[in-house]
């Protein structure tokens, strides 16, 4: 099984540790993981702004980079959502359709494809608030959203429960958007920041030492908000926790 690792642009630039943790974690399960060297981005910033034509060349490059793999794995729910649902600016050839259908977010890859049972190396003795990124939650169905009358499930919490010592704390608005929203964060900065303040305030009141999420972009925004408000909690990607990060 050949695994192509996709490290989204903002992870590459700002959170390289998340990329490293993802690579190492997959390797712990004995997988051969390759990192196509010419990769850049999934096209989401342009597509979400309506600029599909401007995203076409980036999308084509993504497909070219990952065509040869059995699975593409990325530590980002929102990028995987883009690939799966919105990578449509280029003609939908068989190759394009194939890449789109074999691209997985890390949590769902571990949970649904590898069906991992234990993480003996992982210990995280902290109070953790889990942040469901909206694309992960409602776009690629990581968990049951609070709006729906359906049985509870949560793939990320299933995985985190395998980590020794972790204590999950509950938020009063468990899956309210944190206000990042991609380019929303720069085009509607006041509302975006206010949503972030409310989110990090909720986490702090819940007593969270750490906020864990499957998306670095939301965490980057929340971290910026928490620091501005002087709140103490720290932010870490789920790949790092599952890979046995010591914090």
């Amino acid at each position: 099984m050949r695994i192509g690792l996709f490290v989204p642009c903002y992870v590459d630039a700002f959170e390289p540790e998340v990329g490293i943790a993802t690579l190492e974690l997959l390797e712990r399960f004995g997988l051969k993981v390759e990192y196509p060297y010419d990769q850049t981005c999934c096209g989401q910033p342009m597509t979400n702004t309506g600029c599909h034509a401007e995203a076409a060349a980036t999308e084509a490059l993504f497909v070219k980079n990952f065509t040869e793999f059995d699975y593409v794995v990325a530590p980002s729910g929102s990028c995987v959502h883009q690939v799966r649902e919105h990578l449509t600016a280029i003609p939908q050839t068989d190759a394009v359709k194939a890449v789109r259908s074999k691209t997985f977010e890390l949590v769902e890859f571990l949970h649904d494809v590898l069906k991992i049972e234990e993480l003996p190396w992982a210990e995280f003795p902290h109070k953790v608030a889990y942040h469901n990124n909206c694309n992960s939650l409602r776009g690629i169905h990581h968990a049951r959203p609070s709006e729906l009358n359906a049985p509870f499930f949560s793939k990320p919490l299933d995985l985190l429960k395998k980590v020794r010592g972790i204590e999950i704390v509950d938020l009063t608005r468990p899956d309210e958007c944190c206000g990042f929203g991609g380019t929303f964060s720069v085009f509607e900065p006041a509302v975006s920041a206010k949503m972030g303040y409310d989110k990090v305030g909720d986490q702090a009141r819940a007593g969270a030492d750490y906020v864990v999420s499957a998306d670095s972009s939301c965490l980057m925004h929340q971290k910026g908000c928490a620091e501005r408000l002087g709140l103490p909690q720290k932010f870490i990607h789920i790949a790092q926790v599952l890979n046995g990060a010591v914090a």
């Binding site: 700002f14 390289p16 990329g19 964060s185 206010k194 972030g196 908000c225 501005r228």
Partner: peptide, 21 residues
């Protein structure tokens, strides 16, 4: 620079994932 108005800027790491790899 609307990001920095309401939020702290992210720290830039010493090295990108790409160069680490």
């Amino acid at each position: 620079n609307t990001w920095g108005k309401g939020r702290e800027m992210p720290e830039t790491p010493k090295q990108s994932f790409h160069s680490w790899y």
